[in-house]
């Protein structure tokens, strides 16, 4: 386990363990708000601020919070920061506040934030935790901006509101609707996997530094994991 330095944490969050394309966390805002590149970027940066601050705060408090009530304690910390960010957005960037709407308070239950608090910030010193939050947040922003840009390009012929496609292009409206989010997410994840697999073939170390394992083994596909645990329900079904 490598607690690492700041740059390594940033690289980890942005590429190796990209929360959207690799860990598949935070799917709700990923699918819902990425109707345009601007919305995706706004959501990503908002989440990044909360993530960095809550990681830092939880890391500071990690020796004080009793283990049994750690989840409620994390939620209180996260919710406080989300409320602050929400009020700031409403005051200073009302356009973004209107565009994101309900999804700003929903950052509280974004599993990336709780996941990083649980699996990283509550076990590591303050500075790496802060950079872990920034790295993960940048990865999330990057992913959301990519998805938003592709959806906006195909669904409206624009990127960041700039008209890109020729006038003869007929916008494919499904891409700015809900199904388009799934298509684009799946396609971009496939591209990401392709890059990772060809990197592995060339002998590069593409393994995860520290997985975002939150003991949800049912949905985990990490084959080498020593904690692998099979639910009792499955075995009884086989009998």
């Amino acid at each position: 386990m490598n607690n690492g330095n700041a740059m390594e944490r940033l690289y980890n969050g942005l590429i190796k363990e990209n929360p959207t394309f690799v860990l598949m966390l935070g799917m709700c805002p990923t699918l819902a708000v990425t109707t345009s590149a601007m919305n995706g970027l706004g959501m990503g940066l908002t989440t990044m601020v909360v993530l960095a601050l809550s990681n830092m705060m939880i890391s500071m408090l990690r020796n004080i919070i009793p283990d049994k009530v750690r989840i409620p304690a994390f939620i209180v910390v996260i919710a406080s920061f989300v409320t602050m960010v929400e009020l700031l957005l409403e005051g200073f960037i009302p356009a973004l506040y209107d565009a994101l709407g309900l999804y700003i308070p929903l950052i509280v239950v974004n599993c990336i934030i709780l996941g990083r608090a649980e699996s990283y910030a509550s076990k590591n010193p303050v500075l790496p935790s802060l950079f872990d939050g920034i790295g993960m947040g940048l990865g999330f922003s990057f992913a959301l901006t990519c998805i938003g840009a592709v959806r906006e390009l195909l669904g409206a012929g624009e990127i960041f509101g700039l008209h890109i496609m020729p006038d003869s292009y007929v916008p494919c409206a499904i891409f700015i609707m809900a199904p388009g989010a799934f298509f684009v997410l799946a396609a971009l994840t496939a591209v990401q996997n392709k890059i990772r697999i060809s990197g592995e073939k060339k002998g590069k170390d593409m393994s995860k530094i520290q997985s975002g394992c939150s003991e949800d083994c049912m949905n985990c596909n990490e084959k080498g994991c020593s904690h692998r645990f099979y639910g009792e329900g499955k075995e009884s079904e086989q009998k």
């Binding site: 007929v170 494919c172 409206a173 499904i174 891409f175 609707m177 199904p179």
Partner: peptide, 10 residues
């Protein structure tokens, strides 16, 4: 259905 949602008017 994909086409119907994407290009409703056409």
């Amino acid at each position: 259905c994909f086409l119907l949602i994407s290009f409703t008017s056409i």
